[in-house]
């Protein structure tokens, strides 16, 4: 029998029978977008080490992906990934985690490693809420929203532009998409994997159970519909005023540039220090 087989099931750990996400959660769409990018590049799961933190999005690679996976403590996956990349510079290191993990508790590791421009791909799945613990306010929860820890509405300003933060910190590649853009997301992930530098992709992902219900934005389909309606490409967005951009989601690839990458710089430093290459003689010493 010539039965149709899902092309990405071969990337799933054999002991895993299904995704761990709630029905309609966008995280599964992100998972598939990653696998499609890897497959599209003709790469193998053994070319990668995946690192995740704590929260729903951390379960995208762990245990789902049939690869080396380090499921770390809350907020720290990028710091663990730093050590892995330094130890295995020839492997692709990919961090997949949520907005609470990477931007709240782990914010400084995100900033500092974007600054270092160490080669790794960081996929920040932004659902605007703490889903796993039952719908608490995140730094990405829009102001005024009632959550389980803000029953009278959040009273804090929120991160509207995580990508902007990472751009300012110095990453080589930064893109934002939503789960309504899985094809574009896959294309950006392909570029991110190949980037010599810190590559950051923010994906807005629907959480129908904790976010949709609380915000009144509805179920998975309604949330996807909302992402589609509010999204605007970076090119189009440039033509609009900040007023006109209120409540819009600017999507696209914001930054794609070449600059010194840390692993390469470290390798160069080691070559100099170990005497493998001669130190450049200071001209002033003549």
């Amino acid at each position: 029998m010539n039965e149709l087989v899902h092309p990405y099931h071969c990337f799933i750990r054999p002991t895993v029978t299904h995704t761990t996400f709630c029905p309609g959660c966008g995280d599964g769409t992100v998972a598939q977008s990653i696998l499609r990018a890897i497959d599209g590049l003709g790469m193998d799961m053994d070319d990668f080490v995946f690192v995740s933190g704590i929260g729903c999005a951390a379960w995208i690679p762990s245990p789902f992906f049939n690869a080396d996976v380090l499921h770390t403590t809350h907020g720290r996956p990028i710091a663990f990934a730093f050590g892995i990349k330094m130890g295995l510079p020839d492997k692709k290191v990919m961090v997949v985690s949520g907005d609470g993990d990477l931007v709240a508790i782990g914010g400084n590791h995100l900033i500092q490693n974007a600054r270092r421009n160490i080669e790794m791909t960081v996929i920040c799945v932004n659902n605007g809420i703490y889903g796993m613990t039952g719908g608490q306010a995140a730094p990405t929860t829009p102001m005024g929203v009632k959550t389980t820890t803000t029953p009278y509405g959040t009273f804090e300003n929120f991160f509207e532009d995580i990508s902007g933060l990472v751009i300012a910190a110095g990453a080589s590649f930064v893109a934002r998409w939503t789960t309504a853009h899985p094809r574009q997301l896959t294309n950006s992930i392909k570029k991110a994997i190949q980037k010599k530098g810190f590559a950051f992709i923010e994906v807005l992902s629907q959480c129908p159970v904790q976010f949709g219900r609380k915000m009144g934005t509805g179920n998975a389909v309604q949330m996807l519909e909302d992402y589609k309606k509010r999204s605007i490409s970076i090119k189009e967005a440039k033509k609009l005023s900040p007023e006109e951009l209120r409540d819009r989601i600017v999507v696209g690839e914001f930054v794609d540039l070449d600059k010194p990458e840390m692993v390469e710089e470290v390798t160069r430093m080691i070559r100099r220090a170990s005497g493998e290459v001669q130190e450049v003689v200071d001209a002033g010493r003549g």
Partner: peptide
């Protein structure tokens, strides 16, 4: 992050 990186490097075989 120091201990995190150390643990990561150890898993990388170092």
């Amino acid at each position: 992050s120091s201990i995190a990186a150390v643990i990561g490097a150890s898993w990388a075989g170092k």
